[in-house]
């Protein structure tokens, strides 16, 4: 058992009346029946309960799948897992901004709440998208520390506490895709891997063991869709739910690739 904030543990049957009337939450949701289907909008009104977030609204819809006018519809498809903004799967565009549905509290949103899938990623169905390209990007920049082997490598080198603190901030990226969605340079005319991947390369380049693959990561950042595709619009840092200093990471990696490129050229 762990302790949760009580808001989440509230009773589901509690109802809120306004002038003796049930209060409703109004939502406009973009639906899409399949990867190649046409998108269309649908409106919903779900009974309001205090502390509600967008996910609890969607859950309300699937328990009683009818639209605003009471006509039966198929339940909205979306993904969720942790419900506490650590897994990143529930990212969608809510009132125009990419964010996590689980931490989008209804009380803080203007209604009707406008909900769309992220446009940067292929839509699978309704609000469910395929973020596969993000994981491919992480593979490309080797966003890990290779320590697997057949024998014990012993304790790794230590990291100064001061560096650990800022590196920890970068490590909080949960591949949610908000920065990729907001970036004007991620579109079908470019192959930009996205801000988060540059920041992850910085994180693992800083790690004392990860440093051993530093050159590989920098080479990847100089490759197709790499760091040069960034045009400094800096939307990423504004939308990142974890407040990751993405623009600092990008500039720091720009510095690293500059030295790396010049060093490599001078050594030839």
């Amino acid at each position: 058992m762990t302790e949760v904030a009580t808001q989440q543990g509230r009773s589901t049957t509690e109802q809120v009346l306004e002038n003796g009337q049930q209060k409703f939450v109004h939502l406009r949701i973009q639906r899409q029946d399949g990867p190649d289907a046409q998108a269309y909008m649908q409106e919903f009104a779900v009974p309001y309960t205090p502390g509600m977030n967008v996910i609890s609204c969607l859950m309300e819809i699937r328990t009683n799948p009818v639209d605003k006018n009471g006509r039966p519809v198929t339940p909205v498809v979306w993904e969720m897992n942790c419900l506490e903004e650590v897994c990143g799967i529930c990212t969608m565009v809510i009132n125009g901004k990419p964010r996590q549905a689980c931490t989008s509290l209804v009380d803080k949103l203007e209604q009707p709440i406008d909900i769309k899938p992220m446009r940067t990623f292929p839509v699978i169905r309704d609000l469910m998208v395929d973020r596969g390209r993000m994981f491919d990007a992480l593979k490309r920049v080797k966003a890990w520390i290779p320590i697997d082997g057949t024998y014990n490598l012993g304790p790794g080198p230590r990291m100064p506490e001061k560096d650990r603190q800022w590196a920890y901030e970068l490590s909080r990226c949960f591949t949610c895709g908000a920065c990729v969605e907001a970036c004007p340079n991620v579109n079908d005319r470019t192959s930009f891997i996205g801000p988060f991947a540059l920041s992850q390369a910085r994180l693992f380049n800083e790690h004392p063991t990860g440093m051993m693959n530093r050159a590989d990561r920098l080479d990847a950042l100089m490759g197709e869709g790499g760091i040069h595709e960034c045009g400094n619009a800096q939307n990423c840092v504004e939308v990142c739910p974890k407040g990751i200093p993405l623009t600092t990471s990008i500039a720091a990696m720009n510095r690293q690739v500059t030295y790396h490129a010049m060093g490599a050229w001078l050594k030839k």
Binding site: D33, P35, R62, P65, P72, V73, T74, P75, M128
Partner: peptide, 11 residues
């Protein structure tokens, strides 16, 4: 089952 789709039918 209100959803008869064969694409990502969560229901």
């Amino acid at each position: 089952v209100s959803d008869k789709s064969r694409i990502e039918n969560q229901t």
